[in-house]
Design a protein around this nucleic acid. Structure first.
Lengths: 116, 116
DNA sequence: TTTAGTGCTTACTAAAAGTTTAGTAATAAA
DNA sequence: TTTATTACTAAACTTTTAGTAAGCACTAAA
């Protein structure tokens, strides 16, 4: 028997796209880091302060992933002590729609589960 | 120094809501299971067949989590061999908006990363 | 001279998530 | 009698993810 064609709620390609989006926000820290950046945090240590509990190691790692996804732009300024600027990009801002949808549904879900 | 008030892109409460929504879709299998259900799959083994590669253990575990979040309704029909029906709920359907937003951004992101 | 600050990296550990293999009761078909 | 089916569960295992502790180069302040 062959597989049926993809006239489904969500095709296999769609599934991959959804997963791509989820992956970008996956893990314990990325969302918080992005929010810190959208709110204007710039330097490594500044982000570390805003994202409560994160270790240098994790922050460094997550920033690299975000950079690979063009959600963070890194700029080194030659100074002592070193200054490294991290900034949100236009691509980061395009995430707003997604975060908004997640947020709205999150509130809706909580009402549903905790009883209206 | 006190914490500043939450006049940010995303307040702490908002963050929790976003995370709640993400948690509901977290893990390797939940999204695929939900899609299978939205497409009409009903019985345990039917879902297992549609969700390629999942083990019985994982399916059972994930279905329980989804049920706890009211995203799946379980109904046992007393028969031999046993019949257990799994169905999407209205709450599942409310997730559509979120999944759609993720999907759209996922495609957009792919274009961005792979070069337009 | 010791200390602190900056943006990291390395090595290691712990915890969470997922996989594999096997097994259950009850029945019916081969 | 052996095998298959259904909807699971249990134990042992591996993989992935996250956390902890330390250290590096460099400089300025205490």
């Amino acid at each position: 028997m062959d597989k049926p064609p993809d006239n489904d709620v969500c095709s296999n390609k769609d599934l991959l796209a959804v997963r791509d989006a989820l992956d970008v926000l996956s893990g314990k820290w990325k969302l918080q880091i992005l929010i810190a950046l959208l709110n204007g945090a710039i330097r490594f240590k500044e982000i570390a302060k805003q994202v409560d509990g994160i270790s240098d190691r994790m922050l460094s790692k997550e920033l690299k992933e975000l950079e690979a996804n063009q959600l963070v732009k890194r700029k080194v300024i030659d100074a002592f002590p070193p200054i490294v600027e991290y900034k949100a990009t236009s691509h980061t801002k395009s995430l707003h729609t997604v975060i908004y949808a997640l947020k709205e549904w999150g509130y809706f879900h909580r009402k549903k589960i905790l009883g209206k």
